[in-house]
Nucleic acid binder design. Structure first.
Length: 587
DNA sequence: CTGCCGTTTCGCTCTGAAAC
DNA sequence: GTTTCAGAGCGAAACGGCAG
């Protein structure tokens, strides 16, 4: 058990109150022994807080023993005026605290008398509780640090209790948490972890907590091999029999054919980049890793024949429709200012200031057509620091019939019943909030975050059953919270993302390249002085592939055999042979 | 809602290798 | 010697998830 106690360095790092620490001068210290043993008693601790004028303050504290006895459950009156009771979490209401006279120092005294010198305090995110108690205790186990997600993220106590203890706590029906229940859950979780050990915890709950399929027990071997007699992964079988784990990394689609082979630990990735990252992290834990990259095959699938030029033209046209020129801007303006100005209308792919113009202008590329359209609609001209700033699209051969193209996109069967909504806040991501706000205009089929809206999903697409609902919504002012939402008709074809978002568009204006210092200009000039880095698409993909393989190779241990296979293809009835590189890493 | 923590992303700088 | 490029390292900002 003692090995799971936080060391002083860990407590400092995790912001636990420590003796002599900055900001903890007024905290009280328990009379604790210097060392604890495996037989030292565990005490579960949980506190509830409210927000006062001076910040969070204690309102309730509970302590349970390892026998499950609640030895302290006390309401505490904060010193400062309460501005938020946090009833949803704490369950504490104004009426509950009305007749309470117990103050923090009394609780501290009770706790000091209650806890033996070798007591180990257990809690979930215990640092918060100890700070609220203004208490320093050196022997602590924090269950939020025992059970960790990938990348060190913490689990909710509720989830851990549900999965590990098969117990429902913090029930939705009840108002607020019960600190006795939470303290008991944390204590039991710590006890479980100590008894089982980290390895067994991971093995038993791999799927429930980490979403990874469990490694098979030996008895399952024969069954799985018989079920898949054609498996080409018998090497994995042999390794597994020898107790050497094997890993299969790649995109789920690419692995479909072999994913049922239970001999392999599988990890599905969404991109080659992710595949490499995962590989770098885990490769040394496996005797054999099979990694499948998809960027090349995807690229080949996307550009299979001589249609490439037409597709490039279309992709370039769509990309140009995402671009706006903004200016003249105040000379003090930075790219960040431009970003802040236009962010509410859509996610920006790039912002660059044009140095070649007499007054300061910026060229902005949105991820989606709607972002540019919405910004144009809402800000065709605006006042920034006494300067009238205009937004306009680039003019070129490809954008001459822009209005017709936009109308075509709006009326596309995929878009005609759909609107794009921008300027959502973090709080309004909830499907239900949007559903409530927009169902007034008609029945809604679907609400999906707009592609390229980033993880924060500040832009979304709402699909109505009827196109009349689209008109009704666009004619109205929709507000969510205090925020007025920006809306326009959906424009982006579903396939656009894969067409246009491979390489940044390169633009030239008046014969002078904007940002051409950084970007590659294709040898084969595009009409009207516009060009696209897509011409070098295959080289880009190959370079990326090469870089990824290099990264993987560097992550390998010395004397590891690596085999890189580039499969051959048949294109336009011509057979292009594949390649294979074999190398043993020496240094 | 705020605060905290950890991760991710992005931009910037530096460095070393390769190409010219 | 200069230029170009990729990669590494760093810090700031953004983001996500947890806590109350």
């Amino acid at each position: 058990m003692s090995s799971y106690l936080l060391t002083e360095q860990e407590r400092i790092k995790k912001n636990f109150p420590v003796k002599g620490g900055r900001g903890f001068e007024s905290f009280v210290c328990t009379q604790a022994d210097d060392h604890v043993t495996d037989s030292s008693p565990l005490y579960g601790l949980d506190c509830e807080m409210c927000i006062t004028q001076e910040g969070p303050e204690l309102t309730r504290v509970a302590v349970v023993t390892s026998r499950g006895q609640c030895v302290l459950d006390e309401l505490v009156k904060p010193f400062n005026a309460i501005i938020n009771y946090c009833t949803r979490f704490s369950g504490i209401t104004r009426s509950m605290l009305k007749n309470v006279t117990t103050r923090l120092h009394e609780v501290q005294t009770k706790l000091m008398a209650l806890l033996p010198r070798n007591a180990v305090l257990v809690g979930h995110s215990l640092d918060n509780d100890l700070r609220a108690l203004r208490l320093i205790h050196p022997h602590v186990i924090d269950t939020s640090l025992l059970y960790r997600k990938e990348f060190g993220q913490r689990f909710k106590l509720k989830l851990l209790a549900e999965v590990i203890l098969k117990r429902e706590i913090q029930s939705e029906e009840r108002r607020g948490h019960d600190p006795c229940e939470d303290a008991q859950a944390a204590l039991d979780l710590a006890h479980y972890f100590i008894t089982k050990g980290p390895r067994q915890v991971v093995e038993c709950h791999l799927q429930d907590l980490w979403g990874v399929e469990p490694f098979p027990v030996n008895g399952a071997l024969n069954g799985s091999v018989n079920t898949h007699p054609a498996s080409s992964l018998l090497f994995g079988h042999a390794l597994h029999k020898a107790g050497l784990p094997a890993l299969f990394l790649g995109q789920s689609d690419a692995l479909n054919g072999v994913s049922s082979n239970h001999l392999w630990r599988r990890h599905y990735c969404n991109s080659d980049k992710e595949t490499v990252c995962v590989f770098q992290r885990v490769c040394q834990s496996y005797s054999l890793s099979l990694v499948q990259f998809s960027s090349l095959s995807e690229d080949l699938r996307k550009n299979p024949t001589g249609e490439t030029h037409t597709l490039q033209q279309m992709a370039l046209r769509l990309k140009l429709m995402c671009v706006l020129f903004v200016g003249p801007l105040p000379h003090t303006y930075t790219e960040k200012n431009v970003h802040t100005l236009l962010k509410p209308y859509g996610t920006l792919r790039s912002v660059s200031l044009l140095q070649s113009t007499h007054t300061l202008h910026a060229v902005v590329e949105f991820h989606l057509l709607e972002g540019a359209q919405l910004a144009l609609q809402s800000l065709s001209s605006l006042q920034v620091q006494d300067t009238v700033v205009k937004l306009q699209r680039p003019v070129s051969e490809l954008t001459l019939d822009l209005e017709a193209s936009l109308a075509e996109l709006q009326n596309d069967i995929q878009n005609s019943h759909m609107i794009y909504v921008g300027g959502l806040s973090r709080r309004h991501h909830h499907h239900d909030d949007l559903l409530n706000a927009f169902s007034a205009f008609g029945r809604i089929c679907d609400i999906t975050p707009a592609k390229g809206s980033g993880k924060s999903q500040r832009h979304t697409r709402i699909k109505f059953v009827s196109s009349d609902s689209v008109c009704a919504a666009l004619d109205s002012v929709v507000q969510l919270g205090n925020r007025k939402l920006n809306m326009c008709r959906a424009l982006t074809p579903p396939h656009m993302h894969t067409w246009t978002h491979t390489d940044p568009v390169t633009m030239e204006t008046n014969g002078e390249a904007a940002g051409s210092e950084e970007r590659t200009v294709s040898e084969e000039a595009e009409p009207a002085g516009l060009t696209c880095a897509q011409d070098g698409g295959m080289q880009c993909v190959m370079r990326g592939l090469d870089r990824n393989v290099g990264k993987m190779f560097r992550a390998l241990e010395r004397h590891t055999l690596s085999i890189v296979i580039l499969p051959g293809i048949i294109r336009d009835k011509v057979e292009y042979p594949g390649l294979c590189f074999i190398q043993v890493k020496q240094v």
